[in-house]
Nucleic acid binder design. Structure first.
Lengths: 365, 365
DNA sequence: TAGACGTGATTAAACGATTAATCATTTCAC
DNA sequence: GTGAAATGATTAATCGTTTAATCACGTCTA
């Protein structure tokens, strides 16, 4: 090809109609003053020629790239597909493209990834931090999806409420000794979920305990058993994991030990990940409304982008030294916490159905 | 901010050194003729001023956006995080950004998504098609990651060989009656895996049968049981799924039915998805070398982008009517099939360890 | 009828980077 | 010592779009 993309540009449309490019631009953007009939003709020929505006030209002139960055420090997060999908969809509706950045779980590479996005000229970015990582000055509006308890959070699921829902569900089923399963005590999301869970229960009548997988794996190695059969023997009848990933781990470990779920022990998760509806028994879990979250985040981000830039083009004369540094404006939204929805499936059930199976199963441990 | 990004541009660097912008550009790109000491000074001040080149300006001039598109028709694919991560990483190394496009599983929206990428001016795209979807003319180089048996495939894992590996593994463990579990017979990837599997076995000594989940769910509804306990009674001792997702489904269903894995039945999967190492028993599976695949795809794509554009800027005089239409050049790579690697964990084992457990378990069905 | 005003279009100047063409020097060879 | 070549830097055009400023012209008002 060579000189840019093959398609026609404003100049060609203007030439083919014998008018000026400015008029074409005005007609297509609907901004200037163009007579209706001419505008119509212009739109028609533009369509006929298959005109596609050059983002590069537009970006150069307006200073807006029309692209947002999506930063997921922990891309291996199984929730990622859903988030990416929702963000991409909302962004597309708002006329933006989405550039992904990955820091491979490494906090150090996060700044690099963000830097790459900046260099690509993103107009704003959505960051889903892991473990409350601090966001370095990004030089553009930033929306953060983490948890309501994190300062600077733009919008997120109401993890605390989600925890409460699950807790009530298990309490209503009659469970009185519940093991909470989390991965890392450094995660604010997990802490919120656990906090909400505990807050819904009367500590005097219901006993809870928290198991941190990461701590266990430091000792026993990754993928080790969680020792849930022991917990069952100690009287725990329900296992509430802060993620379906851990719920799955619990479920299979219990099943392997011959402990029937939900007959002898209930298991619940979080996030309604892809496998949750198809495992046996299907996981009771709680789902975030990612579509709503993405929409709120993108809306807030886009309006921050538009607000912040009154297109103040500086004249040769005036210096712009005393700018308050446009760096990293953390975006806020009116509705910052989106309720989570309980999904009851087969992995949770009432107490005391078939206690005896527990024993026959324990032989396998 | 206003006029574009706050940072300095070539003009400012040039002004602060009292030289011309062309020299600055030459020095930073290392292309023109600049004395070493001046070049050094230029680089120094560029760094000192925190210069970040404007992609917009560069894109407009060169006709290259420096951005690739990643199209995943089925973004809910649990393999997505890995693919996205690998592609993003390889692309970043090659100096490209990655724009994501999602078509939410709908073939119709795929063209729309591709169109959006085109409008954003991507230099090329990587497409991971679902069920051998045909790719519409994209107007730019396209790399396809599907399966070696698909015409037009650029690079992919050697699914056939992967199937063979799993088959041999199960055969060597002594299994003689194996159930293959697939989702859809329309998937070329799944067909390759199954084809390879069967090709490694002598059909007279080892019996195989294929179970298509999609067909079953049409009758019994999504998330239904696969009836594996019955299969065990019929003498099947191994269940080879074409994805860890289905393997997980099989594993939990067997466990729920009281059939011990791997003692009474072996289960294997594909893709080494995130949960595979942590469930109990950990899944025996086979992993694609996504890093290598991404690297090959990106390399091929980038070189196609560079080849195809000898920066033939057309002079006012010459018409460019007889262009062979630059649309949709399918990219090819030398190495188009990347071997898969068998990962033996605990879900597969030799026959005949503890047959009796099967019976005690069947009560639970 | 002159001035004010509105309408519909054009002119021209950016935005920031790249690069072919050009110009000034200096170096070198014969 | 003079023409050729190499070196190091500059000039200026260009990519495609947006937009403030301007212009031409018809209409309304006083």
């Amino acid at each position: 090809m060579g000189s840019a993309r093959p398609g026609p540009n404003l100049t060609r449309i203007a030439a083919s109609l014998g008018i000026s490019v400015a008029t074409v631009s005005n007609a297509l953007s609907g901004k200037g003053r163009v007579s209706v009939e001419l505008a119509e003709r212009i739109r028609a020929t533009a369509a006929a020629l298959g005109y596609v505006p050059s983002q590069a030209g537009r970006a150069l002139r307006t200073g807006r790239s029309g692209v947002l960055g999506l930063v997921l420090p922990d891309i291996s997060n199984p929730l990622f597909p859903q988030i990416a999908q929702a963000i991409e969809h909302s962004a597309a509706l708002a006329g933006y493209g989405v550039l992904i950045a990955d820091s491979r779980g490494d906090v150090g590479m996060q700044s690099e990834a963000i830097q790459r996005l900046i260099e690509r000229g993103v107009d704003g970015m959505v960051i889903v931090p892991r473990r409350g990582t601090r966001i370095a000055g990004a030089g553009c509006p930033v929306a953060i999806i983490d948890t309501p308890s994190t300062p600077g959070n733009t919008v997120s699921a109401d993890h605390w409420q989600g925890g409460r829902e699950i807790a009530r569900h298990l309490r209503n089923l009659g469970h009185r000794k519940i093991l909470l399963i989390g991965a890392s005590s450094a995660s604010s999301v997990q802490n919120d979920r656990i906090g909400g869970f505990k807050s819904a229960l009367d500590a005097t009548t219901i006993k809870t305990e928290v198991l941190w997988i990461e701590k266990l794996e430091e000792r026993d190695g990754p993928g080790c058993l969680l020792g849930l059969a022991d917990k069952v023997r100690q009287g725990f009848t329900a296992f509430a994991a802060v993620s379906d990933l851990h719920a799955l781990r619990a479920l299979t470990e219990l099943q392997r030990a011959g402990i029937a779920v939900p007959d002898s022990a209930s298991v619940t998760g979080f996030d309604d990940l892809i496998w949750s509806p198809v495992v046996t028994p299907a996981l009771t879990t709680i789902r975030m409304d990612i579509t709503a979250i993405a929409e709120i985040a993108i809306t807030a981000l886009v309006s921050a982008i538009n607000d912040g830039e009154p297109i103040k083009r500086m004249r040769p004369g005036e210096a712009s030294a005393d700018e308050p540094l446009p760096g990293s404006r953390l975006v806020t939204a009116e509705k910052s916490r989106v309720p989570m929805q309980l999904i009851v499936r087969q992995s949770s059930g009432p107490l005391g159905l078939a206690k005896n199976e527990t024993f026959s199963g324990e032989l396998l441990t």
